[in-house]
């Protein structure tokens, strides 16, 4: 991509990333949550990939690492469900509810949000890598 695109990407990609993290962490307080925040984080990585090419991104974060993170997210969500199972029933909210409107409240809901955010980010980014970049490479040759 051109110099303008690269410069704007350098200035905005981390803002998008931080916005996604903010949406995930405040998912139990404000609109949004794990899914929306995960998609926004994946969009920041896609932003970088489109501007700088896939090699620059895959040097920092390999495809295997993305797959590992996706499995980590799924297993973490399942582990939270099983911890709830140990506390009573499947998906029971096993942590204390805490004071409403605080960041550390709502029991295990923020943990589930983080797990789902990791899972959605890694899943959508690996779909993007597989579906778009590999195809374009094949077409170029």
């Amino acid at each position: 991509m051109s110099l303008i695109v690269k410069t704007v990407t350098r200035l905005t990609a981390w803002l998008i990333l931080l916005y996604g993290i903010n949406i995930i962490l405040h998912g139990h307080l404000t609109p949004g949550g794990g899914f929306a925040g995960g998609v926004i984080i994946a969009l920041s990585f896609i932003h970088l990939t489109l501007a700088y090419g896939k090699d620059a991104v895959l040097r920092q974060l390999s495809k295997e690492a993305v797959h590992v993170w996706e499995s980590v997210g799924a297993l973490a969500f399942l582990a939270i469900a099983l911890f709830g199972g140990a506390a009573g029933y499947f998906f029971a909210n096993f942590l204390p509810a805490g004071e409403p409107f605080n960041l550390f409240s709502a029991g295990s809901i923020p943990l589930s949000n983080i797990a789902i955010g990791i899972k959605v980010w890694a899943g959508l980014f690996s779909i993007f890598l597989a579906l778009v970049l590999l195809r374009i490479n094949r077409g170029d040759k």
Binding site: H28, G32, G107, I116
Partner: peptide
Amino acid sequence: TGAANLVTSVILDYRAFDTLGEA
């Protein structure tokens, strides 16, 4: 649930099983 956002309290507490299916 202690969650101020009711949508999150539904999808991750009351109906978390649906969210597991979505994942």
